[in-house]
């Protein structure tokens, strides 16, 4: 397992992409949608009281590190994951694993990833990428959201791994240590779907899961009344940025999960999963419609109540349809 054997594949989402790439390196044939579904990556959260860079936090994904751990656990893959107190020990640990020829997954801030264009480089601290070797003092990087492999200077990598803010990665890194002889894909798919249904439907608090989509819809309705026009537009803009940029959350995640349901349906020869995949594709289109309308509001810079009400209604459609779909998925017989 030398470093030149690591094959980089581009994916839609960072953590499911890293997970697929790391497992493929071990000879496990797994697609990104499969990793996303088994790892139950789909989530929703809106925390009006937690402001990041002055705007309320909205998340479309499960907490960082969860997808990789869950996929490994469900497929019987042995892994090691670790956080560090200081950069020196974190970089030493990285170097010693790379020296054995194993690629290493890491979480870091996008702001310090110098290989990305400035447009994307915000203080977003939950990005996943892989280091697969070292050359001329630079770390060789496979970042699943870009097409080709790249590299980064140690100083910038340290800054990214030890970024401050919300959340703080603290040098978090993870890698595969061993694979299982036989994997039960059917069981892993079942566990992944059940967990996503649980996280979307069961949280008793209004800020998490499907309920939070309706909370956000209610909040959007109040923006033009409570906020100055510029701020209202910024709040809406942030929802869309978290949804579609580096995070890929809104429509992108629905298509990703729909791709998972389709693949699972084919693998397990279940038409019901394929049917739910098609339904989720339509819901993805609704999320796109929501983003499209939000962009129109941003461009117009208006705070007329009607357009914000309409935007809220569009989000309610997403929430309602999704609730129905996850209720059906929850009732699946295995």
């Amino acid at each position: 397992m030398s470093e030149d054997q690591f094959i980089h594949y581009q994916h839609a989402h960072c953590e499911s992409g890293v997970t697929a790439n790391l497992l493929r390196h071990e000879g496990i044939d797994i697609s990104e949608p499969m990793a996303f579904g088994i790892g139950a990556g789909l989530f929703f959260g809106h925390l009006p009281f937690l402001k990041i860079s002055g705007v309320p936090a909205t998340t479309y994904r499960i907490w960082p590190g969860a997808i990789f751990k869950r996929v490994a656990e469900r497929l019987g893959v042995k892994i090691h994951a670790e956080r560090f107190k200081d950069p020196a020990s974190a970089m030493q640990a990285l170097d010693s694993v790379l020296a054995t020829g194993r690629p290493v997954g890491m979480i870091g801030s996008v702001f310090y990833l110098t290989y990305l264009p400035e447009a994307f480089r915000f203080h977003f601290n939950a990005h996943n990428f892989v280091a697969y070797g070292k050359q001329n003092g630079q770390y060789l990087i496979s970042d699943p959201i870009i097409e080709e492999v790249t590299s980064i200077a140690p100083g910038d990598l340290i800054k990214s791994r030890f970024a401050k803010g919300t959340p703080e990665p603290k040098g978090y890194m993870y890698y595969v240590t061993g694979t299982a002889k036989d994997m039960n894909m059917a069981k892993a798919i079942e566990q992944g779907i059940k967990q996503t249904c649980f996280f979307m439907l069961s949280p008793p608090l209004p800020w998490f899961g499907n309920k939070a989509i309706f909370l956000l819809a209610d909040k959007i309705r109040t923006y033009p009344k409570k906020l100055p026009p510029r701020k209202a537009a910024l709040y809406v803009g942030n929802i869309i940025r978290m949804q579609e940029e580096i995070g890929t959350g809104g429509a992108g995640f629905r298509y990703l999960y729909a791709a998972f349901l389709q693949e699972a349906g084919l693998l397990l020869k279940r038409d019901d999963l394929s049917e739910y995949s098609a339904q989720l594709t339509k819901i993805g289109d609704d999320w796109r419609n929501f983003a499209y309308h939000a962009a129109r509001i941003m461009k117009a810079r208006t705070t007329d109540l009607v357009s914000y009400d309409q935007l809220s209604d569009l989000l309610m459609i997403c929430g309602t349809q999704e609730k129905e779909l996850f209720q059906k998925l929850r009732k699946l017989r295995w």
Partner: peptide, 22 residues
């Protein structure tokens, strides 16, 4: 389902541009 490369989407670009303009 299949993966397709996209150079961008107007709605996303608007949100990104708004953030940078601000």
């Amino acid at each position: 389902y299949t993966g397709i490369n996209s150079v961008g989407w107007d709605a996303e670009n608007t949100a990104l541009k708004q953030a940078w303009d601000d």
